Amino acid sequence: MIRERTVNAAILALLVAVPAWAQWADEPFTITLATRVVIFAVAAVGLNIALGLGGLVSLGHAVYFGLGGYAMGVLASHAQNYSPLMEWPLQLDGTKSMPVIWLTAILSSALAAVAIGLLALRTTGVYFIMITLAFGQMAYFFAISWPAYGGEDGLSIYVRNSFPGLNTLIPIQFYGLCLAWLGVVLFLNARLARSSFGLVLTAARQVPQRVEAVGLDPTRAKLVALVISGAITGLAGALFADLNRFVSPTMLSWQMSGEIMVFVILGGVARLFGPVAGAGIFVLLEHLLGGISEYWQLFLGIILLLIVLSGRGGVVGMLSGRGATHE
């Protein structure tokens, strides 16, 4: 079997080679598809920290994804001249600066993860899943009932936000920013998995009683993991909203939470590059089969079923032939 490091290197090479070829061939849409893959991969890496390391099956991760998107939308809409209602409910100083927007998205999503985690982690199993789903639905319907920022119709941002020294309207440059962020969160994930905190988190997932026996708090470890996970997913939401220059309540829906989880399961739970592979497969299937049939998810379901039945390691695990652990 191929070593997992080789599989990871091949995935990384594709992330570099495909957009480079598209730039050379003047295929900007391919670069946009690749950017979509990278942003979804960032969101899935965030979930993989909570799910793969902490064993937290969250069906409410779209809360953080949507919060990141709305952080971008609200700040950018206050900075542009056009207002859909011509009058804002809040007197905010908007900004088109990506670093400021990213920081806002990360902090707001992290704070939401603290609030949700403090309540949800009082439960386990299916109850934890239902509580995270409930928070997701509350956030979704709140966004729908918020007409000041588009309500059900969403909010359009007519000019992409700015980053010092770059023209973010050029697809390959915006892709480079997103790829850099993916590299950062993958590095963070790898370090967490190998750190003492990662060992505590793994032990808390497997045998929490033993963690308590040595004087550590498994719930606190899971809360920290959930906060880190939410912050990363919120960053992905801001990037996704900037890619589309549009934010809507669908970013907060339970379907979005399910899609992020599908990315992780497809690629491989607890695999470092599993979320990247899963996001790539999902976007590729959506692009290739979406034009053939509006029911393309049927084929996705069949593939997901085969992967789950064949082993827990996802696509990366099947190729490397190893268990669901980080190499």
Rank of each mutant, 00 (worst) to 15 (best):
T132W: 08
L133Y: 12
A134W: 08
F135P: 01
G136D: 08
G136C: 09
Q137T: 13
M138I: 15
M138R: 05
A139L: 14
F141A: 04
F142R: 10
A143M: 13
A143Y: 08
A143C: 05
I144H: 01
I144K: 03
W146G: 07
W146Q: 10
W146H: 05
A148R: 03
A148C: 00
A148L: 00
A148Y: 00
A148I: 02
Y149W: 01
G151H: 08
G154E: 05
L155F: 03
L155H: 01
L155D: 03
S156H: 06
S156R: 14
I157L: 01
I157C: 00
I157F: 01
I157P: 03
I157R: 04
Y158H: 06
V159W: 01
N161T: 13
S162W: 02
F163A: 10
P164Y: 05
P164C: 11
P164F: 02
G165M: 02
T168R: 00
L169D: 15
L169A: 15
L169E: 15
P171V: 03
P171E: 12
P171M: 11
I172P: 11
I172W: 14
I172E: 12
Q173H: 14
Q173R: 13
Y175H: 08
G176F: 10
L177Q: 13
L177S: 09
C178L: 05
L179R: 06
A180S: 11
W181P: 00
L182W: 09
L182K: 00
L182P: 00
G183E: 10
G183H: 03
G183T: 01
V184A: 04
V184D: 00
V185G: 09
F187H: 04
N189R: 07
N189F: 07
N189G: 13
N189P: 04
N189L: 11
A190M: 08
R191D: 11
R191M: 12
L192R: 06
A193M: 08
A193S: 15
R194M: 07
R194T: 12
R194C: 09
S195C: 01
S196I: 12
S196P: 09
S196F: 06
F197M: 12
G198T: 04
G198I: 10
G198D: 10
L199A: 14
L199W: 10
L201C: 10
L201H: 14
L201M: 14
T202N: 15
A203P: 09
A204N: 14
A204G: 15
A204W: 07
R205Y: 06
Q206R: 10
Q206E: 15
V207F: 14
V207P: 08
P208L: 14
Q209G: 14
V211N: 07
V211H: 10
E212C: 09
E212W: 02
E212K: 14
A213D: 09
A213K: 09
V214Y: 09
V214M: 07
G215E: 02
L216N: 08
L216I: 04
D217Q: 06
D217L: 07
P218T: 05
P218D: 04
P218I: 06
T219H: 10
T219M: 09
R220A: 11
A221Q: 07
A221P: 08
K222M: 13
L223W: 07
A225K: 03
A225R: 06
L226K: 12
V227N: 12
V227D: 09
I228L: 15
G230F: 00
A231F: 06
G237W: 05
A238W: 01
A238I: 02
